[in-house]
């Protein structure tokens, strides 16, 4: 499996306290990988390091066989990373359509094509094209954030807790969409607290505890580990 994203011994500190310690993981092309951990484990920190919001203290960060630690955020994105952040962060004063359009770096026709594809992926958005970002419901904003992250046709999609704040039904819908995204050629790294659902839609998973990766394996194997069962699956 060729490593799309390769992270090796990554250490990230917030001032005097570390948030990630020697985190090593990889995402290959064509797979969905789950990152599981309780509140404060360091999932969002890892994502922010990948997109360049945070500067790691040490460790290697490679994307498409390229060291990206020296690149600015937008350069990493343009290499083929899509990022749907925790809390969604849609542009509140831009319409739904504009939120999608700003993220396309291609000609006008291609822009329209990709926007249409997002609308077919999330039909709810299509009906609210001219609504402003802040006027959407939380679930619609989440769809918009994911749609926006897909606009650059990324090789790797980072989804930070997409089910947060959604009804169980909506969360299921969103997570169910992940398989489709992977099938279209985009690998997914998914941070989730809902371990059951995450393991259901992903091929592999890493378990993060207080900044350290404590377990790794295929979703199927992890589902059966005592530790995961005890800590996350309530049994």
């Amino acid at each position: 499996m060729s490593g799309l994203l390769e992270i090796d011994k990554l250490c990230v500190w917030y001032g005097p306290v570390f948030a990630l310690k020697d985190a090593t993981l990889s995402v290959g092309s064509g797979e969905a990988v789950a990152l599981i951990g309780a509140n404060g484990a360091g999932k969002s920190t890892l994502f922010k390091s990948i997109v360049g919001f945070l500067r790691p203290k040490s460790g290697a960060l490679r994307f498409l066989d390229r060291d990206v630690t020296g690149l600015r955020t937008e350069q990493r994105i343009r290499l083929g990373v899509g990022y749907s952040p925790e809390g969604r962060r849609v542009f509140p004063g831009l319409t739904v359509r504009e939120n999608l359009e700003v993220a396309v770096f291609a000609g006008k026709a291609e822009r329209a094509r990709r926007v249409d594809r997002a609308f077919s992926l999330f039909p709810q958005l299509a009906t609210r094209q001219e609504a402003l970002g802040w006027q959407l419901s939380g679930g619609q904003q989440q769809m918009l954030a994911i749609g926006r992250a897909l606009m650059g046709q990324p090789r790797l999609l980072l989804l930070d807790e997409p089910s947060l704040g959604l009804s169980p039904k909506l969360a299921d819908e969103v997570l169910a969409g992940i398989r489709g995204i992977v099938k279209d050629g985009t690998s997914v790294l998914l941070a989730e607290q809902n371990v059951g659902k995450a393991l259901a839609c992903c091929d592999r998973a890493y378990v993060l505890e207080v900044g350290k990766i404590v377990l790794a394996g295929t979703a199927a194997a992890l589902r059966d580990t005592e530790e995961v069962k005890r800590a996350f699956l309530g049994g």
Binding site: R72, T73, E74, Y83, P85, P92, L94, A103, R148, A149
Partner: peptide, 12 residues
């Protein structure tokens, strides 16, 4: 509106 997020969709 959100400089960091703008960068995170690829805007320089």
């Amino acid at each position: 509106e959100d400089r960091q997020m703008a960068q995170a969709v690829g805007i320089p």
